[in-house]
Design a binder for these strands. Structure first.
Lengths: 206, 206
DNA sequence: TAGATTGTTAATCGATTAACAATC
DNA sequence: TAGATTGTTAATCGATTAACAATC
């Protein structure tokens, strides 16, 4: 549902709004996110707890709090990253995840030269130790798959076997998982095709 | 248009199909991309050059060739990356871009310690030298923005002033550009919200 | 009060899926 | 021939936008 992704985006934007500001209208929030006021109101309309005040808009602090609840982030989330390569380490620093209490707590890899090291303050363990790790960190349910596509399916299988409940996949390949495992894809790079296509069309119009 | 993004994905998948295979049906291609056969045929139906043969499917080699043409990749594309940090360097290795003749030819940064170095075989120049670089590389039209969000707008402005015609933005922020400049956003990380939300809902159902 | 803004329904738009005749 | 598969139209589904009464 697109609304959920936008709620996350609203939340990030709201974190950057001046602290002295108490209320924000659907018009303002829409402008900051490049969506229409209608879309903002429609998004909020799905959830009973997202209510505004006529003529004033939405109270920013309570709006943030309620979106956090809807997204399931009250207690934050601890996430591990499988694959301590470029993408994995880039991700650990990217975005405002920290502000939203989303934390990357460990890397797992099979490359012996990396195991035991720290990358950006996050320790690297061997993938074989994942099962033991989860014994002591049962709150970790999500693993981010940042390994080369050739091994993504195998690594995913191992990760699931170790007890992980949900996968966030950055490897540009489809991964098959059992019904009880959740998976979301992050197909990085796909929008480039749209950009190149748009350029071609623009050139043709001239 | 979603069709264009899928055409890129079909192309990547087709590059991995066994060489001995001559034809592929919409059913098979759909399965490999996790879309329905209907969607595949509908996608192809938009373009006169994507024709199949009853009972056999689509001839793979010509299909690849025609998709490349539609996407505007016959001559390949040379792209520069602004910001030689983690995301930029990760990107330069990610995906099957090389196979599709999409090449990252240079980094630009303002960090003096990086300028003059090579990262993954790609040279880093100072952002101030972009204008001169484009003098000698007029075929470069696209710049990938991989800088921190705080400076993304300024860097984009400079990049455009230097003569770049299209931006591919990885910085998690909205960038304003003049009408004659194309921009596409790659909002990495957004699907995590959907995943966490789905987990919350699943837990509630139990 | 007049004007701004919400909440909500309806209309529109776009994308996906279904259906099926044509055909090899 | 019978069956598989395309090309294409129609139906469905979902998401966005428009409209507007209620209200502060």
């Amino acid at each position: 549902m697109k609304t959920i992704i936008r709620l996350g985006q609203y939340l990030e934007i709201l974190g950057k709004v001046s602290e002295s500001k108490k209320y924000i209208s659907s018009k303002e929030l829409g402008e900051l996110n490049y969506v229409t006021p209608s879309t903002v109101r429609q998004d909020f309309f799905y959830f009973d707890t997202l209510k505004g005040k006529t003529k004033r808009g939405y109270e920013i602090e309570s709006l943030k709090r309620e979106i956090v609840k809807i997204l399931g982030l009250e207690k934050g989330k601890k996430i591990i990253i499988i694959g301590a390569g470029k993408i994995g380490t880039a991700l650990s620093q990217y975005k405002d995840f920290k502000k939203l209490n989303i934390e990357f707590t460990a890397f797992f890899d099979i490359k012996e030269s990396l195991v035991g090291k720290e990358i950006e303050g996050i320790r690297v363990y061997h993938l074989n130790d994942l099962k033991d790790y989860l014994k002591f960190h049962p709150e970790v349910e999500i693993a981010t798959i940042c390994v080369p596509p050739e091994v993504a399916q195998d690594v995913a299988n191992e990760t699931i076997k170790a007890g992980i409940k949900a996968l966030w996949n950055f490897s540009p390949v489809i991964i098959k998982v059992p019904d009880n495992i959740l998976i979301e894809y992050e197909f990085v790079g796909t929008s480039l095709y749209s950009l190149i296509y748009a350029m071609k069309k623009r050139n043709m119009d001239k």
